[in-house]
Nucleic acid binder design. Structure first.
Lengths: 116, 116
DNA sequence: CAGGATCCTATACGATACTG
DNA sequence: CAGTATCGTATAGGATCCTG
């Protein structure tokens, strides 16, 4: 039998995990974070080139969401024409472990499903 | 300057992380996994009750996908009427760390955005 | 270069009713 | 109980073109 506090905790954990997924799910978010993280600072057009198949519309939209969620910082550089640089915030960097583990798990998963 | 092998690796990591997200993203997957994981074994109707807002259609659909991806195991119990039990496979259990970290990060994220 | 606007399709998801 | 079927809406995402 499971006690009340236990169940209470469990509900909170469910909510927390949902919160994370709300921010991270979607087809491109993690790839975008990976790209920026890998290069430390990265311009719009570079990210666009890094990620196979993404459209400028989606990149723009996702970057905005990531910015709202304080995961990336956007800096307009004073160049001609204008370039925009993205980098991870401290909060964004705190995702590094998770991204790493998702990477490892993804490799294992591919083996599990296709390989063997 | 970033060398070729480095970039090669990076592309593979991007693919791996995408593979993971393909399996885990969606509104309900992680909640379902959490529910089953928390109770070890869990019946369809119990999971349905655990997760606030999910419809039986979605639960059924998501469980099928999780089964195809070898994350959960489905067992029909010989009762009257029939009950069906779900549990995590070994592969499914290997997500435990990630789920834990997503939970912790979700809590921190909520503080970052709303709280302080 | 960095995006916004527009148009379009596919899928995700919800609600409800039904069945073995 | 554990789904399936059906119908409907909303959102995600793609393609293309446009602008400061």
């Amino acid at each position: 039998m499971v006690c009340k506090n236990f169940e209470q905790n469990y509900k909170q954990e469910m909510r927390a995990v949902q919160d994370s997924m709300d921010v991270l799910s979607g087809k491109w978010k993690i790839s975008i974070l990976s790209s920026i993280c890998f290069y430390n600072k990265r311009r719009f057009s570079d990210i666009l080139a890094d990620i196979d198949g993404i459209s400028n519309k989606m990149l723009s939209k996702e970057l905005k969401e990531l910015e709202v969620n304080k995961l990336v910082k956007r800096t307009v550089l004073d160049t001609q024409p204008v370039t925009v640089q993205y980098e991870l915030t401290k909060h964004g960097l705190s995702l590094k472990t998770i991204i790493k583990e998702l990477t490892d798990w993804g490799i294992r998963h591919r083996k599990e499903i296709i390989g063997k």
